[in-house]
Nucleic acid binder design. Sequence first.
DNA 1: TGTACATCAGTGAACGCGCGTTCACTGATGTAC
DNA 2: TGTACATCAGTGAACGCGCGTTCACTGATGTAC
Lengths: 209, 209
Amino acid sequence: MTKQQRRKPGETRERLMNAALALVGEGRHFSSLGIRELTRKAGVVPTAFYRHFRHMDDLGLQLVDELGLALRRVMREARANVGQSEKLIDESVAIFINHARDNRNVFLFMAQGLAGESRAVHEGVRSEMRFFTMELANDLRRLRLVDHLSDADMEITCDLVVRTVAFSLTDLLGVSPEDDYQIQQIEQRTARFLKLIFIGAEHWKSRDR
Amino acid sequence: MTKQQRRKPGETRERLMNAALALVGEGRHFSSLGIRELTRKAGVVPTAFYRHFRHMDDLGLQLVDELGLALRRVMREARANVGQSEKLIDESVAIFINHARDNRNVFLFMAQGLAGESRAVHEGVRSEMRFFTMELANDLRRLRLVDHLSDADMEITCDLVVRTVAFSLTDLLGVSPEDDYQIQQIEQRTARFLKLIFIGAEHWKSRDR
DNA sequence: TGTACATCAGTGAACGCGCGTTCACTGATGTAC
DNA sequence: TGTACATCAGTGAACGCGCGTTCACTGATGTAC
């Protein structure tokens, strides 16, 4: 205990990031967190913060990058396991909501970033969303579920899907993580939104523009 | 100048609220604002804050209530002036986006509330959205544009519309108020989202659930 | 394999500052008779 | 219409505290030869 530097390399950095997520999970907004508050939560001396980040925005940005990376990996795997049946939407939504539930703090942080103070974090979240939109479009092409749409129309459709799911995250914000009933409601509602969108896409003709 | 209490009744309160909106308009997040900072911006002595609000959350809540009231009035008028043509969506979106542009700070504040720190503000914004959803459903019934949907399905559709428009507000967040081109892009994109949704609603059958 | 040195990450003390909040005050406005 | 009093809204001084940030330090780890 008396010796310094007993932690593994990178551990302090990780602890700080986790502390930020934990505070967000407790209902705080990222932009209102302070450095001392964060280091206290992380069990680390205040000065240690500066060894890894220049300021809070810096931490937020790095958080977005790392979380985005992890998230993409998870969703790719999830999508690979989805059968090609009509249950596609329900399954995908269920996977996503479950993942959001297991990583509640992460998604709350992302949701905050949508309208957050830091331009950098905002951009980061947007860029993740764009990425999801692209991957979704690729998947739909691959599964040949929506063949008649132009590339631009496909992009619009997928963008709307991603937005809708993202908005559902903010629904989760107001609900206790243990409230299974409410969470299931959100899940069902989200699935219906998506079905509505896909029915729209099915009947969409370019002249409708 | 030397005399106290030269302001009109309620003026200090209004100045504080406007100062909050102004700071949000400058890119700050509401939850990171301080009382002293606010009173400074409002040109008012710090203690004056406590004459009108108990704490920042209190101010936020009152802000939501007042803005919501004003907003509903505006949208009701706007909707009354929309022709019944196929241009319905485009016109409504244009009215909304223009209004958002004219009252940028107000809408940014609302958008922040979607994922904000204050439970009260969050609830307030949600409740406004629910109200919009209901009014929209009434309008659609009245115009007999969507006759075949059950009440529940109608509600889902309108909810999705309101969410989509709300999300567009966060798009506006990252764009300069003078960037006409970008704003027009957001407007067009939003209109297409809504068309997609309405085409979906048109072909929606209850068995699709 | 051993030695010398540079780099890295964690520490505790210290700084000055702005913060939220309280207090007792003052004068204007509203109310009762 | 006039007077007495209560309420309201704005003020400046003061408080103690936690904040962000700097500094010089220490020991562990990595690198060169």
